[in-house]
């Protein structure tokens, strides 16, 4: 399999997953804001910071509020991390690998992109917001299902699986980070919103029911974080994503270096969370995990996308 084709598969899957997760992120933030007391001082600007896009936002919408933030994060093609930009990139990558994917998958990607272009600009309306974001999540899930159910699980599929799970693990750490950041803000105002926030986080990841079934405890921040990091069975938990990555990596040629990076990351995920932790430590740990995930990506790229002459 050509390196270029492998790379496009990988990025195509990453961008679809990124669009889905960005939609989930905005959804949870929206819900969390409703639960936080106004005096907590947590507002939309924090979401821009979490996405690491403060400078670009200020250039494009200096002093903007809710409306501008949502436009920037969802429908602004000039923002490379917006949902629409991810959909556009996903489409471009799948377009050039159409011969390897089932035709329906290409059509689903195309439709998802067209849906985003049509609906995402309507997000400014708080009442439409949930519906539009859910539409993105649903169609992305549909594509994932199509690929897993109709595409041979050979090399090309493994690159899709790598891209999807790396992106998913990354976004789960960011969503945990959102909660940590919101709580830190709330702490400062001494108006801690109990555990409703963590419930919102679980719901944003479609993990509330699974948490109840498997953890069987009331919602408690420590347990939720552990569930989202360590659960080997929940598909959006970091540990599960890493197992998926490991399984696909082991089936590809030249897998030694990426596999080593993965095993190292699994160790960190399992060992670095202390019994007791506060939001600041959690924020630090999520930052570290994101850097480690970037290191895994670098190994994947070096092993398979950039063979040396």
């Amino acid at each position: 399999m050509l390196s270029r084709v492998a790379e496009r598969m990988y990025w195509g899957a990453r961008y679809v997953e990124r669009a889905e997760n960005a939609a989930r992120l905005v959804r949870v933030y929206d819900a969390a804001l409703m639960d936080l007391p106004r005096e907590a001082g947590v507002g939309w600007p924090l979401l821009v910071d979490i996405c690491g896009a403060r400078r670009l936002f200020n250039e494009r919408f200096a002093g903007g509020g809710e409306r501008e933030t949502l436009r920037f994060l969802a429908a602004d093609a000039a923002n490379p991390s917006s949902i629409i930009a991810s959909l556009e990139n996903a489409r471009e990558n799948f377009r050039t690998t159409r011969d390897l994917c089932p035709t329906e998958a290409w059509r689903a990607v195309n439709e998802l992109y067209l849906y985003g272009r049509r609906e995402l600009p309507k997000m400014a309306s708080p009442r439409r917001r949930h519906e539009v974001l859910s539409g993105i999540v649903r169609q992305a899930q549909q594509l994932t299902g199509l690929l897993s159910g109709t595409m041979s699980h050979g090399d090309a599929y493994h690159f899709i699986r790598l891209g999807r799970n790396l992106e998913r693990a990354d976004m789960t750490t960011r969503i945990i980070d959102v909660a940590a950041a919101a709580l830190m803000g709330a702490h400062a105002a001494e108006a801690r919103p109990d555990n409703t926030l963590w419930m919102a986080v679980l719901k944003s990841l479609s993990g509330y029911q699974m948490y109840r079934q498997y953890v069987r405890r009331r919602i408690r921040d420590q347990d939720v974080v552990r569930f989202l990091l360590h659960d080997p069975l929940f598909p959006r938990a970091v540990a599960h994503c890493l197992l998926e990555l490991e399984a696909s990596t082991a089936l590809l040629p030249n897998h030694e270096a990426p596999l080593r990076a993965l095993l190292r990351l699994q160790r960190i995920v399992n060992e670095q969370l202390p019994e007791e932790f506060n939001e600041a430590l959690l924020h630090q740990l999520m930052d570290d995990l994101q850097l480690e995930l970037a290191a895994v990506h670098a190994q994947v790229a070096a092993a398979w996308f950039l063979p040396e002459a």
Partner: peptide
């Protein structure tokens, strides 16, 4: 001439 593949050149 070689092509760049996931298994090397």
């Amino acid at each position: 001439v070689y092509m760049r593949t996931i298994a090397g050149l």
